[in-house]
Design a protein around this nucleic acid. Structure first.
Lengths: 133, 133
DNA sequence: CATTGACTTTCCAGTTACTGGAAACCCTAG
DNA sequence: CTAGGGTTTCCAGTAACTGGAAAGTCAATG
């Protein structure tokens, strides 16, 4: 199949599919006589794998690592779990950050009357860190 | 004061302080006879304001907007509240996404034995979307 | 006065993960 | 044969910096 069919099947933009081969994340596809890229089921499955991993927030480098584990019939599940667990910690950390951010900003928004006068705790709160963050 | 003192006081890297003037986010500082940038308290306060806003996840363009409100003695607090509320919704949305991501990945990690055998629900789960995600 | 080392300047390149667009080639339907 | 897609390559741009080179400046020392 041609690139647009492969891309559609994998749920990725055509540009992205080309890009993933350019950076060597997936292997370069074979070409037709006229130079068109041609894809088979296996190539598409790898693209799906990458798309899913990216949706999980794995970086391209992590995808590279996961993909080599995906392709390695002899790797241990512990190797995979290690990477996934690290990623899980990243997510939890990000969640904590977002929560404190949300709470602090919500506090400021709540304190702001939102009327046509210039007094605004949000602006004030951005200018000087408020106590008890 | 020179740029490194200003940067330290504002809690920003020197490079970033220069960058913010380059892109016109803050006005270009005055220069000494030999071309060194010189900062006063007002300039530093604006840098602090930008740093805080960035920490809150406001984009540079939003910072530009907020900064003009910060500098405008006649703007209404409603204008500020509008921007901050939009940002608050972004954060809430991001939190929801992170939660579903976390739950799904945690489910996979939990299902993986993490031993030296190749069976791995994480890899399998990345290859094919699991039901009831 | 010379030197040393820290600080500053400008400018260019690189980062992440793509995305947009131009110019040219290919393919299929009518 | 033409029209309209799809495809190719390559270059540039995004967001928000960050790193580094080469050259000028400053303050303290000998």
């Amino acid at each position: 199949m041609n690139i647009s069919t492969a891309a559609k099947t994998a749920g990725l933009p055509v540009k992205t599919v080309r890009y993933y081969a350019d950076i060597g994340l997936v292997s370069a596809p074979s070409r037709s006589e006229t130079g068109y890229r041609t894809y088979d089921g296996g190539a598409v499955r790898k693209l799906v794998f990458v798309r899913r991993a990216r949706e999980f927030g794995f970086s391209i480098e992590e995808c590279r690592e996961l993909l080599s584990l995906y392709e390695d019939r002899n790797r241990s599940s512990a190797d995979v779990k290690r990477i996934a667990t690290r990623r899980l910690e990243d997510i939890a950390e990000k969640q904590r950050e977002l929560k404190s951010l949300h709470d602090e900003l919500a506090y400021l928004v709540d304190a702001c009357k939102g009327d046509d006068r210039p007094d605004c705790p949000i602006i004030d709160g951005l200018g000087n860190r408020h106590a008890g963050g």
